[in-house]
Amino acid sequence: MTAFVSARLLRSLLPALSLAALLAAIFYLEPRAMSYFGLNLLLNLAVPIALATIAQMFVITVNDLDLSIGAYVGFTACVAATWLKDSPVLGIAVLLGCIALYAAVGALIYLRDLPSIVVTLGMSFVWQGLAVLLLPTPGGHAPGWLLAIMGLRTPFLPFAIFASIGLGFIVHLGLMRSAYGVVLRGAGGNARSVARAGWSMLKIKMTMFALAGLFGALSGLALVGLTTSADANIALRYTLLSIAGVILGGGEFVGGRVSPMGAVIGAATLTLAASFLSFLRLNPDWQIGAQGAILILVLALRLLVTRWERQR
């Protein structure tokens, strides 16, 4: 039994270790980054990416996949840069409506037994189209309060770090420790039994998708708070980044095995990876490719650790 504990401990530490290794490599290449200002620059964008990754994690927990999160974050960012600033009440109403729409999509997927990959694929077109209608060209301006929050100067470490850790902690409490969180995760492990035990699978799916919608919207807000203006394509890459973040954090596609802290760490790792590559003064042609290589490397490491652990 203790063997199980240590193997699982090591595997859950792996995301954190990868992050630390990456951080160390960055500091080695660029010692100036090892400052408050440097860390802030490096990890700023981690907050919206982490929020999107958490959103994706909720969907993955119930054995689905959300291929629309990137387009959705883009749309909410556009909403934040326009309506939220000009007429806050309308803006908030629209965002709440989006969350409701996300829940409705979850309901549709459950009731008609549809593949979430395709439905969310279709929704990605819808969100993108809405964003293009709202902001055909980049523009808008973030509301002042949003800029203030995202630009908070916290002592010791940048706001991004506190925000990410806080996010991971809150979601961990909610999903891993709370009584209903257990039911939500159980639905990913054995949906049939959870339903047979009397829990409403419909409510569970809608809850998870609504949570994805909520955190996706928060991601859009956070993003606009950093970039001050928005455009429809601003977060398209978040879709694949969020999936990668969940997996990097130790989550699995099926079975309801996920880790909120891991997802946040995975998101931070991916954010750092982008900076790491620019510090490497890599030929810009290969920047995209290097991201893929990093992903492969981290997963290979995880496999090696698991194998080594099994042999002991």
Binding site: G188, V194, G198
Partner: peptide, 17 residues
């Protein structure tokens, strides 16, 4: 009908709201 991703105690909760 247990959920393999949950602990023994957590599985109890599933059956006992």
């Amino acid at each position: 009908s247990l959920c393999p991703n949950l602990t023994v105690a957590e599985n109890l909760r599933i059956m006992h709201p």
